[in-house]
Amino acid sequence: MKNIIVYCEITEEQHVADVSLELLSKGRKLADDIQAKLEAVVIGSDLQHIEKEIYPFGIDTIYLFDDARLFPYRTLPHASIVINLFREITPEIALFGATSVGRDLAPRIASALRCGLTADCTSLEIGSYEDKDKTFDQLLYQIRPAFGGNIIATIVNPETRPQMATVREGVMKKEVFNADYQGQVKKMNLENYLGKDDFQVEILERQIEPQKVNIKGSQIIVAGGYGVGSKENFKLLQELAEVLGGEVGATRAAVDAGFIEHERQIGQTGVTVRPKLYIACGISGAVQHRAGMDQSAKIISINNDVEAPINAIADYVIVGDVMDVVPKMIKMYKKHAK
């Protein structure tokens, strides 16, 4: 039977990361589509009972590597384990979070196994592919915006296995498959998987902060683009967000310009959000940004440019200057709020 495997990332609090749970949810659906088993590889330290956290996502087999040297994450030991495990169990599909861990690890594995890898996918589907006179069935379609967001590319890996992809946090939906689902845990003998000199890189110090900003969980998001103009102007967006009980988000251009911190970036290379209300301020709407917000229930676009691409997916378009419109919204909200 074919198998799909998810690399489960372990958080500072010794839980499986949200992005991995999201990938397990997607992995379960893909596994059903191609009649495959869903498997997980979990690598870390002090992982007793970790299986209970992830069985409900429909996992059939967990490959567990538990050793004090395996947390915090280091490239070489994790890479050796995954490479050797994949050689043994030959997965059909392997999914990784597009995090600082997943983006460090997945390419190393793809290189060793000489297989294809697609970064930052915004959608994964199963389908067929024809190349000259050959047809490949049940391939993984790895779909991502490319080239500055001007195009959407569907990538396939017809000949090599596993078919590998990374996906950002929030892109897939976290969904419990069956609360009583029960698979099996395979406790693995680490020494059979490690390479020589795998602990060459020493971690001298770590300062990891707990997640401060939680824009993914916010029901109301006031997001600003490069058009907002300055760090100072973003404070007005902050004020609107506070009044409405929401969070501030931003486009990559606004983050790159230094208007706001990177944690608030929404889009293909940031966070994906699905709030009740998304207020897009001075955002033109590049496809990478829309990939991170187009499933918002209601979208309001405030823009000087009537032709801004984002207006096409907005429920309301306010034509005007952000600095002019936002104060009026704050004033009118305060006037009518109960």
Partner: peptide, 28 residues
């Protein structure tokens, strides 16, 4: 190993959007 199956131009899903001016009454 990666092959491009297809390239799509970005086509926006159009919504029927309501257009407003920035007058106080419309924002209210």
């Amino acid at each position: 190993p990666t092959k491009v199956k297809k390239i799509d131009n970005v086509v926006l899903a159009h919504k029927d959007s309501v257009s407003l001016t920035n007058s106080e009454s419309e924002i209210e």
